[in-house]
Design a protein around this nucleic acid. Structure first.
Length: 509
RNA sequence: GCCGCGUUGGUCAAGGGGUUAAGACGCCUCCCUUUCACGGAGGAAUCACGGGUUCGAAUCCCGUACGUGGUACCA
């Protein structure tokens, strides 16, 4: 095992949006594989035909692309171990299910859903609210263990609907070493006889994951902790089918929690933060769920915040690029406990990445956003200069609209409350004269504008500070933004003078 | 109910027998800046509880509580 090439897989089922936790599972898979020069495979687990959702698979790949976590093998990227959609591998599983039955590790069960429901209902007590199809009841049900062989053959030949169930052994301790949790063990008699092959011929997750991990030569299997309870089934299947020595090493990742319990789409809606990587439009429900991308997150920030939600490198470093993560990630330092997702901290990561990355990395996205809000961008050099000037003030990419909009469109509302109480005729006189001097100014640059502003203030015997705030309101509309003279210098002489004049009429109204 | 997993400030977390129990987010105060930020300096706030073991426990052991996942012909 040690000398084999590392191969990991992410195995989503295409039933909806791609959740935070899903992306983190992808990330850890990816980091682990890339660090060891291995392969990252995406396999689509679409064995439940009733839950198929149009467009979900394509959406998952779009999200991975946005995150920059590209698979080496997948239904769209190809590879030698395909097909990579379980629905297209249907014929494979039956053989293994039959092998298990032949060896006495599994059996055919003919119980109808109604019979199953009746069993659960009849056996239900306060002590045992959810009875299982297990060693205690299997001999009372309709299966190849309880009916004669000839009868079973007949039912099979007649095409009677049936499933294949694993026969869980009695009181056997099943244990394994998880890469995160270390030794974990279970008593086989507390787990039920899970269905392996459904009546429609499709495998359940339990059979499919084992067969495909084997066939695809997976060496390390990362999955959410919600799978830990069914690990004994998978381990038994490995033992029965392919040998424990070939089983991948398991790592059960801690869950990402919401404000109350496991993080859900609902939490996002309730508390106002995204839960999916990208916008997900559920056409059947006509429901749009917001994504981190559309909320204004940079993929670098998204990856970064997910990486450190449950992992850290033991130093004080918090900002990591994908390359650094590949270098520094270690599964040993992944936390055992679930982590509550904190949107405030998530925003901080994005803010750090906005500051860290040059505008050239995200200018295009901001530009598209501006255009969608009706602002024409004709001069890219100017646009980039503006973004560079305001980027320290932005937490999300969408903040650029508010922080830089006035560089393109003059304000139509002014924070007059900030100036009116202290407004005087002397100030009006100052600004009128200032406009004249600006018109005559030969070198339109920040320091020249500032110089004449301060000199003129002195001749009017007004402190420059008394005039700077009004000037800001005139140019910006509100009490925010970079240095006023920088703004004036960028928007140009005509625009500056026009905005001052316009505002003067408002202030004096 | 049963089974599994977990538990260091509000949140993310370092630390794994002797520490003033790091750091970050958020919050508060101050400095910088006559805007808002950025940056800088401070502050409040933590080892779930109970028993052991030990000279000494946040760290090891056992209970309890709480949280969380599973208990489907869903993944």
């Amino acid at each position: 095992m040690a000398d084999k090439k590392v191969r990991v897989r992410f195995a989503p089922s295409p039933t909806g949006g791609l959740h935070l936790g899903g992306v983190r599972t992808v990330l850890y898979n990816y980091l682990f594989a890339k660090q060891l020069g291995g392969d990252f495979i995406v396999r689509i687990e679409d064995t439940d035909q009733t839950r198929f959702v149009e467009g979900a698979e394509a959406y998952i790949f779009k999200c991975l692309e946005w995150c920059g976590l590209l698979p080496d093998e997948s239904p769209v990227h190809g590879g030698q171990y395909g097909p990579y959609r379980q629905s297209e591998r249907k014929v494979l599983y039956k053989k293994y299910a039959e092998e298990l039955v032949a060896n006495g590790y599994a059996y055919y069960a003919f119980d109808t859903p109604e019979e199953l429901g009746k069993m659960r209902n009849d056996l239900k007590t306060d002590e045992n609210p959810s009875p299982q199809y297990d060693g205690n009841v299997r001999m009372k049900m309709r299966n190849s263990l309880t009916i004669a062989a000839a009868e079973t053959d007949r039912l099979l030949k007649e095409g009677t609907l049936h499933v294949v169930r694993i026969k869980m052994p009695d009181h056997e301790t099943i244990s394994f070493t998880d890469m995160i949790h270390q030794e974990v063990s279970f008593d086989s008699s507390v787990v039920d006889d899970k269905v392996l092959l459904k009546a429609d011929g499709m495998p359940t997750y339990h059979l499919a994951v084992v067969v495909d991990d084997y066939l695809m030569k997976i060496t390390h299997a990362f999955r959410g902790e919600e799978w830990l309870s069914s690990a004994p089934v998978h381990i038994l299947l490995w033992k029965y089918l392919f040998g424990l020595e070939n089983m991948p090493q398991w790592a059960h990742l801690p869950l990402i929690m919401g404000p109350s319990g496991k993080l859900s789409k609902r939490d996002g809606a309730k508390y106002g933060f995204p839960v999916f990587a990208m916008n997900w439009n559920d056409k059947s429900k006509n429901e749009l769920t917001e994504g981190f991308k559309e909320r204004g997150f940079l993929p670098e920030a998204f990856i970064n915040l997910l990486a450190v939600l449950g992992w850290n490198d033991g130093t004080e470093q918090e900002i990591f690029s994908l390359d650094e993560l590949i270098e520094k990630f270690s599964i040993d330092r992944v936390h055992k406990a679930g982590a509550k997702f904190d949107f405030e901290k998530a925003k901080w990561f994005n803010q750090e990445w906005i500051k860290k990355l040059g505008v050239e990395n995200y200018g295009l996205r901001v530009k598209e956003y501006f255009i969608s809000r009706g602002i024409e961008i004709t001069d890219d050099a100017y646009f980039n200069k503006v973004l560079e000037l305001v980027k320290d003030r932005c937490i999300l990419l969408t903040d650029f609209y508010e922080q830089a909009g006035y560089f393109f469109v003059a304000a139509s509302q002014w924070d007059t409350e900030a100036v009116k109480p202290k407004w005087t005729d002397g100030k009006t006189a100052f600004f009128n004269e200032f406009c004249g001097q600006l018109n005559a100014l030969a070198d339109w640059d920040t320091s020249s504008i500032e110089t004449i502003f301060k000199e003129l203030a002195a001749t009017h015997a007004i402190k420059p500070g008394e005039l700077q705030l009004p000037m800001r309101i005139m140019l910006v509309g509100g009490k925010f933004g970079p240095a006023v003279f920088e703004i004036a210098s960028l928007i140009g002489k005509e625009e500056t003078v026009a905005r001052i004049k316009k505002a003067l009429t408002i202030f004096n109204a």
